[in-house]
Simulated scan of single mutants.
Amino acid sequence: MACRKENKICFYLECGRTHVKQPLEHALQRWASSVSPLKFYRVKKFAQADIWISFLRGYHGDEFPFDGANGHVAHAFGPPDGRSILIRPKIGPLARGTTMGLDMETLGLREFGHALGLGHIEVQEAIMYPIINPTG
């Protein structure tokens, strides 16, 4: 059973690696502290979560495969579904905690916005702008 009550939202994070976990948890705390009354709690069981975060590649059961086309590296589904799906960070020339040059906190901040029900906006500097530029 999910724990969504008033301002409490539980999330399940499939990956426990520190270089992934910390920036994603920080992204959630940014939503909680700066723009909303929400409080996020990490749960250990998938079935308890309102939002779940998975790291997948290629086709993964929805109509939005991570195939590299158009640079798609993540997507999220808003309420009532509320699940976030992030592609696994690439290993190799990119820094740990990045995906195709995007840092995990920025990517998480944006995708959690979608999971909370926010859409894109046409303000280029905003986190919910349709395109995120890779970090320099």
Rank of each mutant, 00 (worst) to 15 (best):
A2N: 08
A2T: 14
C3W: 02
F11H: 01
Y12Q: 12
Y12I: 11
L13N: 10
C15G: 07
G16Y: 00
G16M: 01
Q22A: 01
P23E: 00
H26T: 11
A27T: 06
S33R: 11
V35D: 12
V35F: 10
S36L: 07
S36Y: 12
K39A: 07
F40I: 11
F40W: 13
Y41T: 14
Y41R: 14
R42V: 00
R42T: 01
V43L: 05
K44A: 11
K44L: 12
Q48P: 00
Q48A: 03
Q48I: 00
S54V: 05
L56D: 04
R57Q: 05
G58C: 01
Y59M: 00
D62L: 04
P65F: 01
F66R: 06
A69S: 11
A69E: 15
N70Y: 15
V73C: 08
G78I: 08
P79S: 05
P80M: 08
P80E: 10
D81C: 10
I87L: 00
R88D: 13
P89L: 04
I91D: 09
I91G: 04
A95E: 14
A95S: 09
R96C: 03
T98V: 13
M100D: 15
L102R: 11
M104F: 12
M104C: 08
E105L: 06
T106K: 10
G108F: 01
F112G: 02
G113Y: 03
H114M: 08
A115V: 02
L116W: 05
G117H: 10
G119V: 12
G119R: 10
H120Y: 14
I121V: 15
E122W: 14
E122T: 09
Q124H: 05
Q124M: 09
E125W: 15
I131D: 09
I132C: 10
N133V: 13
